[in-house]
Design a protein around this nucleic acid. Structure first.
Lengths: 220, 220, 220, 220
DNA sequence: TATGAATGAGGTTTCATTCAT
DNA sequence: CATGAATGAAACCTCATTCAT
């Protein structure tokens, strides 16, 4: 019974923790690390400032854990997207689709995600950057594995190391997500991603699939 | 003679201004805008704090002018790289080569360049972001022009709009420059860039060039 | 009970606010607005600098509220002094007496009061000067009302508009308060004020009171 | 001949010195001591900043000398006004008239004059305040002398010490000059001064002049 | 335990003054 | 001599963090 009480408390605590992280995410992604004070986060999360420090030892740690939390969650989803049954082409297609879905769902997350991916964020201690880098690396590895499997299966030509293929794909995805973020109407990610993916896959597809559906001509 | 005196003063002033910008570039790129105080820049540039404000009205303006200065310089060089005589394939090859040369030459510049390119920096007023964005857009347009010319000349297949081709190429270049920055030995840009460029060009090259030199197999 | 707790906090807060204003009053009146730093006020009030800004958003506002607080308080007392039962001569006598009592009680207040009265202080935004001017004007009006009533009652001769009588009386009071401030022994306000008031009243008293007690000859 | 050259130089220097003081007067009276930088004065006077310090050792001294210069000039004029031939009543009348003429001529001077008269200017070292006070005292003495002579001549009743009469007269003049400064149309100094002076003089005039022109009734 | 008042280091910026040219 | 570039002390204010209640 005591266990249950504790469990409820713990759940409550976790919920509060999450509320803080949510508030921090919104504010940090909109204004940047240094333009958001702990007081503002506290206000948005509807906690007293002292309470914030019960959950996180300092601002940097809050930022770190916020990044980590959503990175881990997103990573899990992206990796999952690569594990659907089917061949490697289908996996890659799904990955690109899911990545767009998840990140377009929440612009705040997207901004932070791209920031995190491309830039050694200069706000924060190097050691943290390693952690975050490691997490991203894990995803890259998984993606590289899929490319490698595709190559082994004869689906893709070994034009590039699998790792570089992963890097390239991700960088292109990020660019087009950024374009979408700046002007969603003029640069619809879903449609563009399909086209670019087709191009990307075509360019590395091995010739035995030559009878695959041709790349659609662009309309705009 | 008086002209000469004035000219010397002006040159001296320009040199000092450049010294400040250089110090700012190094520090900002290493620690980020908000982790660098004007005092630190002053110390690094070996000026008194008051002198800083003779050259730049405030910190934001210093940052802005620093970004602008190197962006304009880099942009000019990159655009020039696209204007060498030769066909579009040669132009693109030269662009990728020059971009690497210029940016690898100065890591600080590289970090800031990628930051600037990918991210609407939250430090700075929106109006400034527009200026900087415009500058980048100009480069993209120029690059897109080359792709378009290439398509018209029958060198490239119209798989993607020229603008999207430009975006894609740039995003891949940035990614591989970042890789190089993190571990220059394991990810030599010059070599990788050549490979990736080959892949990129091959994938969009029109079939009449099919007898072009085959893509070299990767060694690692 | 909860009400009581809140009330205590509020009272504490008000006391602190007053302590700050008291420190500011002493320092501003002695050294002038620009020769007193927020740090000095903080030190004198025995608060940390940050605490100052919890109570007042900035230095100007602290100055403004300080002026306003004591102006309102003093004004209320002065107006009250004009509302004692009795005829207009008695009211004026009381006003001069009370004004001296209140202002001599605190030299700091006196300095600032005279400054405020005579001088559009160049430190502070025009809009504030208007507020402070309005407050002073209110007192002048009240004083003028008393003169007017005295004229209607046949006590005073309508030699000057009531408003100008008010101005004149106040300016003389200020002058003699200043004299007292510079050398209290040589220029005792209480005694001088009585004499001057007699002179002032005599000169405007209507003739039907001619049998009033003669003005005492000066002794010094 | 050399004497002549020097003399011209000296005259030139004096003119420049005066130009600086003029610029300082305009700026200080409009914005206040601490809101005017040496650079601004230098710009207005069209001198280099270094040149300013050839004329005045520091900002405070410049302020001091500025006050002194115009105080001495004004004082001389006011004292002169008291030395016209005629009886004491005529002298006082002339004094009030001239004071208005001189000070209304230049609002900047007026502001500074009243500031200086009423307030121990808190900007500046005490020793300076003494100097300036002494100068003012000299004028007061002269004015008191006139009152004393008037009393001795049987023109005025010895209701107040001559010194206090001087103080009172000056304070009233200042008040009405201030009123004029705030709203010249509603409070025309020349007209008001005449009325008030009449009142003032009547109240202290000895009875043997009872057949003097009656005080004009106020119109407004 | 949660609170939020209090803290003070440290940031940006101004400006009186100096001194090499 | 006049100049004005350079100086740096010191001002105002913010905000991460602590701790008594």
């Amino acid at each position: 019974m005591k266990n249950k009480v504790l469990s409820r408390r713990e759940r409550e605590k976790l919920r509060q923790r999450h509320d803080i992280i949510k508030a921090a995410l919104d504010l940090f992604s909109e204004f940047g690390y240094h333009n958001v004070s702990m007081h503002k986060i506290a206000k948005k999360a509807e906690f007293a400032i002292g309470t914030m420090y019960k959950f996180f030892p300092n601002k940097e740690e809050l930022y770190l854990e916020m990044i980590m939390e959503f990175s881990e969650k997103a990573n899990a989803v992206f990796i999952e997207a690569l594990e659907i049954p089917g061949n490697e082409i289908e996996k890659i297609r799904n990955y690109v689709k899911v990545k767009g879905e998840v990140l377009m769902e929440n612009e705040a997350t997207l901004k932070l995600y791209i920031d995190r991916t491309h830039l050694a964020s200069t706000y924060i201690t190097a050691s943290f950057n390693e952690d975050i880098q490691l997490l991203y690396e894990k995803l890259l590895m998984k993606l590289a594995d899929v490319f490698e499997a595709g190559i082994k299966a004869g689906l893709f030509k070994p034009l590039l190391t699998p790792y570089y293929l992963a890097i390239s794909l991700n960088s292109i995805i990020s660019s087009f997500l950024l374009l979408w973020l700046r002007d969603p109407k003029q640069h619809p990610y879903t449609k563009n991603a399909a086209t670019i993916l087709d191009l990307f896959l075509t360019s590395i597809k091995s010739s035995k699939d030559e009878n695959e559906p041709q790349i659609k001509k662009l309309e705009c």
